[in-house]
């Protein structure tokens, strides 16, 4: 299935785009997605942390992704 992943901050700079279209296995887990992304973009593995947001919530590693989910990478936040 095709996932559209929103990118912000340093992840946007690493990937070089604010949206990443990625073909992933049906029902891919959050953890599986991160592994897949770190293979494509090793610099993502250098970050202090990297979370995945699904539909505006922080996802668990075992959560499954669906094609219509709002998916985003969340590098370490630094608001305030």
């Amino acid at each position: 299935m095709n996932l559209s992943i929103a990118l912000f901050g340093i992840t946007r700079e690493i990937v070089g785009s604010s949206v990443l279209q990625l073909d992933v296995p049906e029902g891919q887990s959050v953890d599986g997605l991160l592994t897949q992304l770190r293979q494509h973009y090793p610099a993502l593995g250098q970050l202090s942390s990297l979370a995945v947001a699904v539909n505006n919530e922080y996802a668990e590693p075992t959560d499954r992704l669906h094609e219509r989910d709002d998916v985003a990478l969340i590098p370490p936040v630094s608001g305030g």
Binding site: I74, P75, V77, G79
Partner: peptide, 10 residues
């Protein structure tokens, strides 16, 4: 806010 809200500063 500083721990959970997805805002980033450069």
């Amino acid at each position: 806010l500083k721990q959970v809200v997805p805002i980033w500063k450069k």
